[in-house]
Simulated assay, not measured.
Amino acid sequence: MKKVEIYTTQWCPYCDAAKSLLQKKGVDYEEVDADDADTRMAMVQRAHGRRTVPQIFVGETHVGGYDDMAALERRGQLDPLLQD
């Protein structure tokens, strides 16, 4: 599986939903705390200006937020994206 990174904050229900979906699929992920200002700025640059959390990356692909990842799952496109 490709490396999955998810930028999150502590009190974000969409972050929790994204992590829950990945856990249900058995996907390991690296959680990055976006509460830190420098980390948040790096996330915004990497996510093409998107400031909301979560921001999810699969390998080098920017998936977007939870709604974006859930839409990929509904269309059957998330599993292929996760594969090497």
Rank of each mutant, 00 (worst) to 15 (best):
residue 47 A to L: 09
residue 84 D to A: 15
residue 61 T to A: 10
residue 32 V to G: 10
residue 49 G to I: 12
residue 6 I to Y: 09
residue 6 I to L: 13
residue 18 A to C: 01
residue 6 I to W: 13
residue 69 M to D: 04
residue 12 C to D: 11
residue 49 G to K: 13
residue 70 A to F: 07
residue 10 Q to E: 15
residue 61 T to V: 14
residue 15 C to A: 11
residue 32 V to M: 01
residue 67 D to N: 01
residue 39 T to I: 15
residue 70 A to Y: 04
residue 28 D to N: 10
residue 34 A to N: 13
residue 70 A to G: 00
residue 78 L to E: 13
residue 34 A to I: 07
residue 84 D to H: 15
residue 11 W to F: 15
residue 67 D to P: 00
residue 81 L to V: 03
residue 75 R to H: 05
residue 61 T to I: 03
residue 11 W to M: 14
residue 68 D to E: 09
residue 14 Y to Q: 10
residue 17 A to S: 14
residue 20 S to M: 14
residue 75 R to E: 14
residue 81 L to D: 03
residue 71 A to G: 04
residue 2 K to V: 02
residue 74 R to Q: 08
residue 59 G to Y: 06
residue 29 Y to E: 01
residue 5 E to V: 13
residue 10 Q to W: 14
residue 13 P to V: 14
residue 78 L to T: 07
residue 9 T to D: 06
residue 75 R to P: 00
residue 29 Y to C: 09
residue 47 A to T: 12
residue 48 H to C: 11
residue 25 K to S: 02
residue 42 A to R: 13
residue 4 V to N: 07
residue 75 R to M: 03
residue 66 Y to M: 01
residue 58 V to E: 04
residue 82 L to M: 04
residue 33 D to H: 10
residue 14 Y to S: 07
residue 20 S to W: 09
residue 62 H to S: 03
residue 8 T to A: 08
residue 19 K to V: 09
